[in-house]
Nucleic acid binder design. Structure first.
Lengths: 359, 359
DNA sequence: CTGAAAGCGCTAACAC
DNA sequence: GTGTTAGCGCTTTCAG
């Protein structure tokens, strides 16, 4: 039977049900139409499940069968071209895929985008301005619905010019420019929460080891600490605020100073610092949480959950930042009155804090 | 002058240089052509810098100016539609964006893809089979050049059926199916390297704390250990191989048993285990590296680099896996004779190993 | 209920 | 050197 009619130029009486070819030329709408003996319009209608057009069950079935038999897949490029808007959301990141936990921003953005029928197009710019411009250009050319511009740590940023050609939302960063939508973690609330964990367990003399390097986190986390103390009527004691480089070494190095403060609890700027402090405290034969209660910030899983004892801390809501970024872009979020939307930093209580034994 | 001729239906004498509209309808090739007073073909030619067609400098300039003035961006969807192949590479991951360091696979894939003019389309499936099918379908519809199918830890996997409709490469996982291209870390070489670090420093009695859970890593890392010992003429002593759950608690819990083995060095299945072991050893008043040399595996930055002392370990080459995956997909890599391509796991020496003092 | 036909923005022959 | 034209695969009036 099979005569050599596979000449694609002569769609003469080509209603021959071709077997699914192994990854050859993709099957097109037209081929489905021919196979089903209907017009392309009809196929389009059943593919898109348009309620408006009433297609007879008979026809619908024929089309469905043809689609299945041929293994048809719509060509999203063509759809986009005609509809004018793509189902892409771009995510440009300075180092998000690089840094351990901030990858959660991608994750949150991807989940949320997906939920609304969008796919995520990502670009890691490694902070390279030129790469960034190219990445944004690429996204613009693919007619993305909008762009999420994110940074791996919370900071102020300049808005690249090309970004303005699209709808965009800043994620984990912000600009002083009016009108620029942004979502950032609520550092102040986080600082308050961290301090409250300690307060709640009866601690009154609480030290705060802040970072030495300037950042919104530095200010916000300190503000939260003061607010929490204030709410409890505890006067702010400046001498209880130390500063160290925000990593393990910094925390370790701050041990001596901390010990001079005669406190029962300490809130560290981040988990890495807390990790270093654990070492320092241990070397002094001090036990956590009995001799010193410790809380961190960031909830860096690998560290916080597995220190001995597991560290109570406050989460940096990366996943939520990504998700909220997408919602904001899509106009699904309540527009902020002013300034960036602040995302809650939830408390994660583990075992590094215990009720203070009466002295 | 400006009469109300913005009627887009009548491109009559519409050579009026429109000012760049703020994110209105994107400017099209045709508009540029009209503005420059040339045909669309000409514009296309200069946009794509075709050397073949010789365009007069005069014309070229007029076109360039029009492009700049109008802020024209090519519509990649249209380009793709006509050319037939898109510049997308899909990356479907089971949990890559979720897990701390495996995000590097995304990073490596993105960098390499970008280098060859491709953009990365990602999808995190969270191991959900249905989501995975949808994600692959989406990628297929966007006519991706190919798909990278990756897992967050090295393991065997089934090839989803829809994946076969596209060109694909397995990343950090493999299938027994012939023909399926895959790139995985070279666990055996890694295990050998880890052991060699210890050997090189004079250690002869070296314990290996392997994982309890079955995995290619478990077998490979053990094989590497045996090979390294063998190469040094050290007989394999089964009693020196312990097993524990591969996390901090497991490492901590293995301390007692380890100490009974009377070894001078230990190679841990992973860094998290090593981290737990650090705690256990410390509680016994033992110092690293003097009383016990330790090497880990994975090079989980947050842990390994910041333990006290910093941990010598072997890197899981996630970035390279992503990059090699893309190269393989694009046919830029030497095809493997058989089985998955094995990516080297480089040694990272830090301070947890020191030359063994003569007893 | 279904088909014909116009185009989405762009590229690539092929004219002139 | 540059313009004309025919699609790429699809959606969407508008007829019938």
């Amino acid at each position: 039977m099979d005569s050599q009619e596979n000449n694609s130029d002569t769609p003469a009486d080509a209603a021959v049900p071709l077997r699914q070819t192994q990854r050859a030329q993709p099957v097109t709408l037209r081929q489905v139409a021919e196979a089903a003996g209907v017009s392309t319009a009809t196929v389009s209608l059943v593919v898109n499940k348009k309620k408006a057009a009433r297609i007879s069950d008979e026809t619908r079935k024929r089309v469905r069968d043809a689609i299945r038999d041929l293994g048809y897949r719509p060509n999203a490029m063509a759809q986009t071209l005609v509809s004018g808007s793509s189902r892409f959301i771009g995510l440009v990141a300075d180092a998000i895929a690089t840094t351990p936990f901030a990858g959660q921003i991608i994750h949150g953005a991807q989940d949320e985008a997906w939920k609304h029928g969008y796919a995520l197009l990502i670009a890691n710019t490694e902070g390279n301005r030129e790469l960034e411009t190219d990445a944004i250009a690429m996204m613009l050319e693919y007619k993305v619905r909008g762009i999420l511009y994110s940074t791996w740590f919370h900071r102020a940023t300049e808005i690249p010019n090309s970004l303005r050609e699209s709808d965009f939302v800043l994620v984990n960063c912000f600009s002083t420019e009016p009108g620029a939508r942004a979502v950032v973690p609520d550092e102040t609330q986080g600082g308050r929460s961290a301090t409250e964990v300690l307060l709640k367990h009866g601690h009154r003399r609480i030290a705060f080891i802040n970072a030495t390097i300037p950042a919104p986190a530095k200010d916000g986390r300190l503000r939260g600490y003061r607010e929490a103390l204030e709410a409890e009527g505890i006067p702010f004691d400046e001498s209880l605020v130390l500063e160290a480089y925000p990593d393990q070494e910094g925390g370790y190095g701050a041990t001596e100073e901390l010990l001079k403060r005669n406190v029962t609890a300490v809130y560290c700027y981040n988990d890495r610092m807390a990790m270093g402090l654990y070492d320092g405290l241990r070397e002094h034969g001090l036990s956590i949480p009995d001799d010193m209660a410790v809380v961190g910030f960031d909830n860096q899983e690998v560290i916080a959950a597995h220190l001995r004892p597991p560290l109570s801390t406050v989460s940096l809501p990366h996943y939520e930042l990504g998700a909220a970024g997408v919602r904001t872009l899509l106009g699904l979020e309540e527009p902020q009155a002013s300034g960036p939307a602040k995302i809650n930093c939830p408390t994660v209580e583990r075992d590094s804090v215990r009720v203070l034994a009466p002295a």
